[in-house]
Write a protein that binds this DNA or RNA. Structure first.
Length: 194
DNA sequence: CCAGTGATACTCT
DNA sequence: GAGTATCACTGGT
């Protein structure tokens, strides 16, 4: 069952947890690829009274973060380190800039196509890590702002599963946010980033 | 371990 | 408008 608008209308932590075990599907002219989502991180809002200064929208609205302030269920894709893309899903009410970063997945459809997009990468390196997931799924900045409710990229429900919680990766620069336990992984899965 | 890569968001003028 | 620091990462050594 494809997620509808109201499925994205929840705070980032709730949405990030719920996305674990769900499927991410992308249809293109060349074919379909899909993963079972195994690793997510929540961005935006507060934890124990402290604001998430690790969130891109923390300092306010800019051209890049504009989509985060709109209606939930849209793609927030940005270029990182000049070479790679990170894919986030906007969530929470319109006017509230919450999102969920998708960091890893387990291939479930279009494995050959993913392998072609990923060249020599093997095993979990195919889809584990935010940049790798985007490469394997064919997600780039042309999908910035894409509507996941109506577009060629979407989320569907998956089988129920157990979720583990840990600290977010690579945000040491955030004074408060570096300690937030806002990383979620599929329990027991090897398909997670290092 | 560390170089590569360029958009972004600042800071001055 | 120009200059610059920084970055929610990856792949090869």
């Amino acid at each position: 069952m494809r997620w509808r608008r109201e499925d994205y209308d929840a705070d980032p932590v709730t949405t990030a947890r719920r996305l674990i075990g769900a499927r991410l599907v992308h249809d293109t002219a060349e074919g379909r690829t899909a993963v079972r989502i195994t690793e997510t991180e929540a961005y935006g809002g507060f934890w124990q009274g402290r604001p998430d200064d690790g969130a891109h929208a923390y300092k306010g609205r800019t051209a890049r973060t504009e989509v985060l302030f709109g209606e939930p269920g849209h793609a927030y894709v940005y270029l990182i380190y000049g070479m790679y893309c990170c894919f986030n899903i906007s969530c929470d009410a319109e006017g509230t800039a919450g999102c969920v970063l998708l960091r890893a997945g387990e291939p479930v459809e279009g494995l050959d196509f993913m392998q072609r997009r990923r060249g020599r990468a093997k095993g979990t390196a195919l889809t584990c890590g935010p940049g790798r997931l985007c490469l394997a799924m064919g997600i780039d900045r042309s999908l910035y702002g894409a509507d996941l409710v109506t577009g060629p990229l979407w989320v569907e429900d998956g089988a129920p599963c157990e979720v583990e919680t840990s600290k977010r990766r690579n945000i040491d620069y955030a004074r408060y946010g570096k300690d937030f336990p806002w990383r979620f992984t599929l329990k027991g899965s090897l398909w997670v980033s290092r």
